[in-house]
Design a protein around this nucleic acid. Structure first.
Length: 813
DNA sequence: GAGTTTGAAACT
DNA sequence: CAGTTTCAAACTC
């Protein structure tokens, strides 16, 4: 049921699976206001997070290797409940849910497949092994290695907000929703889980964690949710934010709480810490992988790990809208963002579940709306399926991010792509404004924003989103920024949003998936998968939480067929890296035969959609998503590294940048842009197979060329500056239509060059010319006479100006 | 702007 | 893996 087409499954990276991090989620036993941890019996299924439970469970599993890093997870559900999970040193973990949705905290069992660093894993940590525990009471999990402390958030803003609602946020009700949180972290690293209750105001919930504090690295964060039996009314947004010292990935998941409490909701969040260490440099591959698996039978232990809530609700199907946001090239790390298809009920509270998880180096931002369980889809939510339009938030960003974000998207017909100036794009599907909305309000670094039904700037008629852009690297600092406007996080509330871990062993999937070009949208499984994936640079995701906004505007219609209807406005400065910011806009391609679906096309090779190109018969757009995906797969089959950046770090001791494959130039001497090395402004290296290479450090030709290039650049700059200055002066002069005598007396004579003066001068010069003609003066003499007269005119003008100035001064004007 | 050159990508 | 073809960008005129 869920989602990824078989084809695409093969593309999914192992990282997504990261079975190690995955743990089974025992069947939730809804108990009112209690936290329950039950080891699941089913260890056989590695990924199984989802037993055929009525309730949805959210499980967080963290395998934190580093003790020194703090984690802040904040999950907030906008409408019904807010889930805030934050773990940071000395930050208590609190879970509060004002709304009805039941939350059950259970330590997930490490799945058999997982090689499990289970020692770290949650299983050891028992939220409540003994039995039910009330969430209201502070809850501590596995203090030893991995501490998870669950406390009321009474003090927290979220709780306050919940109180305002009239519900007790701290209490987790068993309304069929199960919250499974498995976290293994250092002792002393509190994790705060907060369930927003319905109606929570955006930005209300906050996690108190110190974002700057060291955060344990998460290897895998999976958030998946699905509604199962009953449609749930209400919406909840969860936001989890984890900050890691060096790099962050924020996962924001917006989900809608089901209207009916009866419908179980399962959230599973698995967080594992990179065992090898926190340092970004670690050889351990980045690991965040998300995958949506299709589950046909609820009974079968789901392979999927999903953090999402499903909503059923409106029968109406909202056309999904997709916006493509240019992704960075080959981010090395992957951020998974799942977006559930929006449910249609307007009456429903939009649920935004932004989850920001800063994992060591990874920041995941997942926004998820509730998603209906596959089962529901088949049954109760027959209507729901129509609703599937999925949203992904696309934020334009600058290339160079090392993260890749995967956003599951619903395969709705209506798709729009946004091409961000400068190129990197992402797919974004926009749900109709009615459902979509979520905004995270920045409260503090660690704070999670509660997403209200009103997201950033989103208008139903025309979808408009403003997304704060933040460079992934800066995520640490991001949260604090106060956002004035409601929308900080772009989330479209959707009935279904899923962040899913692959249920099946993903090894086979992994390889290709990581290499997917940014912006790639993975089509949902043909069999009714609602969710597709969009691969976007994590940077974009992280940007969502930054104060700077990206505004995405799309026409109300969102006809699928329409080309790019959305407009993305991105601040190109500030958060973006220098290289990125300075990067010139992508050049339009001129492909004629490749349909822009081969690597010949720079757009395609860069993982971008064609936009404003001159290509013919272009298939590199959302209108040809199927073909495009197929082409991507083909490319990846041919070369798994196809979409990775060609310019990467060289071996140790070598220059920082070098071509990954090296060039093969034969005639250009590697001193023309034919040469990819030269084009990238890097030296050829030992791996190059070029002939007659002159692109090396000591090359005199190269030095000369570079010198000339620099000189030319300087000239251009000077000319530009001169033109600018001249233009400014001219415009300034033209502005002076009337003589101005300022009290300051600083005006130059030209201020007296009025229309009348000019006409008089013209008459004088013309008269002089006539005189010269009448006297049959040679041309040279005539010119001299005219110029002489012109000089006299100027003298008179200047004299008059000076006199006027003096007179003005005498009268003290 | 048309035509040529070039080398990566694609194909065999 | 090597050779050939295709392709689009870079370059020249």
């Amino acid at each position: 049921m869920d989602v990824v087409s078989p084809e695409l499954n093969s593309l999914l990276p192992d990282e997504i699976m990261d079975t190690e991090a995955i743990e089974d989620v025992p069947q939730p036993q809804p108990v009112a206001t209690t936290v329950q941890s039950e080891p699941s019996d089913d260890t056989s299924v590695p990924m199984e997070t989802d037993t055929p439970m009525v309730s949805e469970s959210l499980s967080l599993c963290s395998d934190a290797a580093s003790t020194e890093h703090t984690q802040d997870l904040t999950t907030s559900t906008a409408t019904d409940s807010t889930l805030c999970i934050s773990s940071g040193s000395q930050i208590p973990i609190s879970i509060s849910s004002s709304s009805s949705p039941l939350l059950t905290l259970k330590p997930a069992l490490a799945t058999s497949t997982a090689t499990t660093k289970t020692t770290d894993s949650v299983t050891g940590t028992s939220v409540s092994t003994s039995g039910l525990q009330k969430l209201t009471a502070p809850f501590t999990i596995s203090p030893a290695n991995h501490q998870i402390i669950l406390n009321k958030v009474a003090s927290s803003q979220a709780t306050e907000a919940a109180k305002s609602v009239g519900t007790q946020p701290q209490v987790i009700k068993q309304e069929g929703q199960k919250l499974l949180v498995t976290a293994i972290g250092k002792s002393g690293q509190p994790i705060v889980l907060q369930l927003p209750h319905t109606g929570s105001k955006p930005g209300v919930s906050q996690t108190s964690g110190d974002t700057k504090s060291q955060a344990p690295q998460f290897k895998v964060v999976t958030i998946g949710g699905r509604s199962e039996l009953k449609p749930v009314v209400g919406s909840a947004s969860n936001q989890v934010t984890t900050l890691q010292a060096q790099q962050l990935k924020a996962v924001q998941i917006a989900k809608k709480t089901p209207a009916s409490s009866a419908a179980p909701i399962k959230f599973i969040i698995t967080k594992t810490v990179n065992s090898k260490g926190l340092s970004p440099q670690t050889s351990v591959p980045p690991v965040i992988a998300g995958r949506v698996l299709t589950q046909n039978s609820p009974v079968i232990p789901p392979r999927t790990i999903t953090l999402s809530e499903t909503h059923n609700t409106s029968i109406q199907s909202i056309p999904g809208k997709k916006i493509a946001i240019s992704p960075l090239k080959t981010p090395s790390k992957v951020t998974v963002v799942s977006v559930a298809s929006p449910t249609s009920n307007t009456s429903q509270k939009s649920v935004a579940l932004p989850v920001n998880v800063a994992l060591g180096q990874q920041i995941l931002t997942v926004q998820q709306s509730t998603s209906a369980s596959p089962v529901k889809v088949a049954t109760s939510q027959s209507t729901a399926q129509s609703i599937k339009p999925v949203q992904s938030v696309a934020v334009g960003g600058v290339g160079g991010s090392q993260f890749k974000t995967i956003i599951p998207l619903a395969t709705q017909p209506n798709v729009q792509q946004i091409q961000v100036p400068g190129s990197r794009f992402h797919y974004v599907r926009l749900v109709t404004a009615t459902t979509a909305s979520s905004t995270g309000q920045p409260s503090g670094p660690s704070t999670s924003s509660i997403q209200t039904a009103k997201p950033m700037v989103v208008s139903t008629g025309a979808v408009r989103m403003s997304v704060p852009i933040v460079p992934a690297q800066t995520m640490k600092q991001v949260a604090p920024k106060p956002l004035t406007s409601a929308a900080q996080v772009v989330t479209t509330t959707q009935t279904q949003q899923r962040l899913i871990m692959p249920a099946t062993p993903l090894p086979q999937i992994q390889p290709n998936f990581t290499n997917l070009p940014p912006g790639t949208v993975l089509a949902p499984a043909p069999g009714g998968g609602n969710v597709g994936y969009a691969v976007v640079p994590a940077q974009y995701v992280t940007q969502l939480q930054q104060s700077p906004f990206v505004t995405l505007a799309s026409s109300s219609g969102f006809p699928a067929s329409t080309g790019i209807q959305t407009q993305a406005r991105l601040p190109l400065n500030g958060s973006l890296s220098t290289a990125e910011t300075t990067s010139r806009p992508r050049k339009p391609c001129n492909c004629t035969k490749s349909q822009c679906l081969k690597l010949y096309c720079d757009c395609f090779a860069n993982g971008e959609f064609c936009n404003n190109c001159n290509c013919n018969n272009c298939f590199n757009n959302l209108e040809h998503e199927t073909e495009r995906l197929k082409a991507i797969k083909t490319c990846l089959d041919r070369n798994p590294e196809a979409f990775k950046p060609k310019i990467g770090k060289g071996k140790e001791g070598e220059s920082d940048r070098r071509h990954s494959k090296g060039c093969n130039c034969k005639r250009s001497g590697c001193l023309k842009n034919y040469c990819e090395c030269y084009e990238a402004k890097i030296m050829c290296s030992s791996i190059c197979k070029c002939i007659g290479c002159k692109n090396f450090e000591e090359s005199p030709e190269r030095k000369t060329l570079m010198h000339l290039a620099d000189a030319a650049e300087v000239r251009v700059q000077q000319q530009t500056a001169a033109k600018t200055k001249l233009s400014s002066q001219i415009s300034d002069l033209l502005m002076r239509t009337t003589p101005v005598i300022s009290s300051g007396g600083g005006r130059l004579p030209y201020t007296f060059v009025t229309k009348e003066v000019l006409e008089a001068t013209y008459e004088c010069l013309l008269e002089q010319a006539k005189k010269a003609e009448q006297t049959h003066q040679p041309q040279a003499e005539a010119e001299r006479m005219i110029l002489e007269e012109f000089g006299h005119c100027l003298m008179r003008i200047i004299s008059s100006a000076g006199k006027a100035k003096a007179d003005c001064a005498s009268i003290n004007c």
